[in-house]
């Protein structure tokens, strides 16, 4: 893998038969992922964009293998097709776009194939020794709230996935925060650039807050029962259907220690002040 610049990659025309010229294998939380390319020089660009805590593997073992093939011999605009198994994810798109799609998909693949860990779609920070989970789907404002909490002194664990082990503890998935500006453009900001630090150790969950952003909303969260809290986690669980037994057991353990709340929230800075007040008051 001699070059890290995709634009420098040797180009070749697409043919039906995929001929592997380069390969990259990594593992992350037990998920083993492979990326095959039909040209050398493309994959090095991915090395610093792999999911957090990924470990490069020498062994060509994977439960999930991507194929990246270059499709156009235009030197100024290399294109590619990305596939996973028999599914084409993007077809003949600019290489940069294809790599962005791959980077995004790798995180999904890790969340699906993780072994012994359960991925819940949630922001996660640690405040005074216990984790705070903020479950929510896309565009629920998780990153905004996580960022504000980190700026207030919380330890960063994730803006995307709460990674839970069998004891219900949350592990770091400290990818750069995907901060969206008002125009909807996403920039990836390492937590250190925000003056924050990423956690390194598993931590028990103390709080689960299912908050929904609404402009001008008044902060009036209501407590949830343990079962309701577990349901809020389950509805954001990546493999809720195939790993339902694991999910129930793990969430049962999470809710042994966690307080669960739900409600609407307004702007992040105001929410953080109110939220930290709630935490300090012990609920």
């Amino acid at each position: 893998m001699p070059s890290s610049n995709p634009a420098d990659a040797p180009l070749k025309m697409h043919t039906d038969a995929f001929v592997e010229a380069d390969a990259l294998y990594f593992s992350c939380y037990g998920a083993q992922v492979g990326i095959l390319a039909d040209a050398v020089g493309v994959l090095p660009a991915l090395l610093d964009r792999l999911p957090p805590h990924a470990t490069i593997s020498d062994a060509p073992v994977s439960s999930c293998t991507y194929q990246l093939r270059l499709t156009e011999a235009t030197p100024d605009s290399p294109h590619c097709t990305l596939s996973l198994g028999n599914t084409t994810l993007v077809d003949n798109v600019p290489l940069t776009e294809g790599l962005n799609r791959l980077v995004s998909s790798l995180q999904v693949a890790v969340s699906c194939h993780a072994q012994n860990y359960l991925f819940v779609h949630a922001g996660a920070v640690v405040w005074k020794g216990t984790a705070l989970l903020l479950p929510g789907l896309s565009h629920a404002g998780k990153t905004t709230l996580v960022k504000a909490l980190v700026e207030a002194g919380a330890t960063y664990y994730s803006d995307e996935f709460a990674v839970l082990d069998d004891n219900g503890r949350v592990h770091p998935y400290a990818r750069p925060l995907a901060v969206r500006d008002e125009a909807g453009q996403v920039t990836h900001q390492p937590v250190e650039t925000l003056g924050g630090v990423a956690g390194t150790k598993p931590v028990p969950v103390g709080w689960m807050l299912a908050l929904q952003y609404e402009r001008g909303a008044v902060w009036e969260p209501t407590p949830l029962s343990a079962g309701q809290g577990a349901l809020r986690l389950l509805e954001n669980t990546v493999m809720a259907r195939t790993r339902s037994e694991d999910a129930l057991r793990i969430f049962g353990r999470v809710m042994e220690t966690a307080q669960a709340w739900q409600g609407k929230r307004g702007e992040a800075t105001q929410t953080v002040a109110a939220l930290l007040h709630l935490l300090e008051a012990g609920g």
Binding site: S63, L84, G85, N86, T87, S104, H121, L137, T242
Partner: peptide, 24 residues
């Protein structure tokens, strides 16, 4: 609640590993 399909529990990328080996 309805247990979410994997795609619904994702952010930004509706594609989970669709290779037949994955089981998902």
């Amino acid at each position: 609640i309805v247990a979410p399909r994997t795609a619904l529990a994702q952010s930004g990328d509706p594609t989970c590993a669709s290779d037949s080996d994955s089981g998902c």
